[in-house]
Amino acid sequence: MKILILCTGNSCRSQMAHGFMQSFNKDLYVRSAGTEASGKLNPHAVKAMKEIGIDISHHTSDPVDQYLGDEWDYVITVCGGANENCPVFMGKVKHRLHMGFDDPSDATGSDEFIWSEYIRVRDEIKDAFSKFYKEEIEPEL
């Protein structure tokens, strides 16, 4: 099972989703990429995931172009920008889905509020991808 998770910068939401999917089943082939990959991970995203025992610090922020020639069972966009600007995977994707999440890096205010946004979005991603895994992926394995 091959799953590609897309976002705009590939530094936060797609990385969290990637980490969750890999934690649900180590045998899944999961990658994440960005339509405008930042080239680095968001340190708050890494910290938020580490807080619940998932290490994504070794992930890389990759441009989507490097995956365009591959075949995918699922391509999932996790932000509006990536959904609108997602390259067309002509005939190489069985299922294309969109699960939108707020970008916690856009949060402004106190440090506590900003951190709470990372936790909120992390937990929303966990819930959505856990449901997706149980309802869509597990039955296919």
Rank of each mutant, 00 (worst) to 15 (best):
1 M>Y: 06
3 I>D: 06
6 L>C: 12
8 T>A: 09
8 T>K: 05
9 G>I: 02
9 G>K: 13
13 R>M: 04
13 R>K: 13
13 R>N: 05
14 S>Q: 01
14 S>A: 04
15 Q>Y: 02
16 M>P: 01
16 M>W: 01
19 G>L: 00
22 Q>C: 03
22 Q>T: 09
24 F>G: 07
24 F>M: 12
26 K>D: 13
27 D>K: 15
28 L>D: 07
32 S>D: 06
36 E>Q: 15
38 S>Q: 11
44 H>N: 15
45 A>M: 00
45 A>W: 00
46 V>R: 02
47 K>S: 09
47 K>G: 03
47 K>D: 09
48 A>G: 01
48 A>L: 00
49 M>Q: 04
50 K>D: 10
52 I>H: 00
52 I>Q: 01
54 I>G: 02
54 I>E: 01
54 I>S: 05
55 D>V: 10
55 D>A: 05
56 I>P: 01
57 S>L: 06
57 S>M: 11
59 H>A: 07
60 T>C: 09
61 S>K: 08
61 S>A: 14
61 S>L: 06
62 D>G: 10
63 P>M: 14
64 V>M: 11
67 Y>Q: 03
67 Y>W: 08
71 E>V: 12
71 E>G: 07
73 D>S: 08
73 D>E: 10
74 Y>Q: 06
74 Y>S: 06
75 V>I: 13
77 T>K: 06
78 V>S: 06
78 V>D: 04
78 V>I: 07
79 C>R: 11
79 C>G: 08
81 G>Y: 03
81 G>R: 14
83 N>Q: 15
84 E>T: 15
85 N>D: 07
89 F>K: 07
90 M>K: 11
90 M>E: 14
93 V>P: 05
95 H>I: 08
96 R>S: 07
97 L>D: 05
98 H>C: 09
99 M>N: 05
100 G>P: 03
102 D>S: 13
102 D>L: 10
103 D>L: 01
104 P>T: 13
105 S>M: 12
105 S>N: 14
105 S>R: 06
107 A>W: 02
109 G>T: 11
109 G>P: 02
110 S>L: 09
111 D>R: 15
111 D>G: 12
112 E>W: 05
113 F>K: 11
114 I>W: 04
115 W>I: 05
116 S>V: 07
117 E>K: 14
118 Y>F: 11
119 I>Q: 09
119 I>L: 10
120 R>S: 06
120 R>Y: 03
122 R>I: 03
122 R>V: 03
122 R>W: 00
124 E>K: 02
124 E>D: 14
126 K>T: 08
126 K>P: 04
129 F>I: 07
132 F>M: 07
133 Y>I: 09
133 Y>K: 10
134 K>S: 09
135 E>D: 13
136 E>C: 10
136 E>D: 10
138 E>G: 08
138 E>V: 15
139 P>T: 14
141 L>D: 10
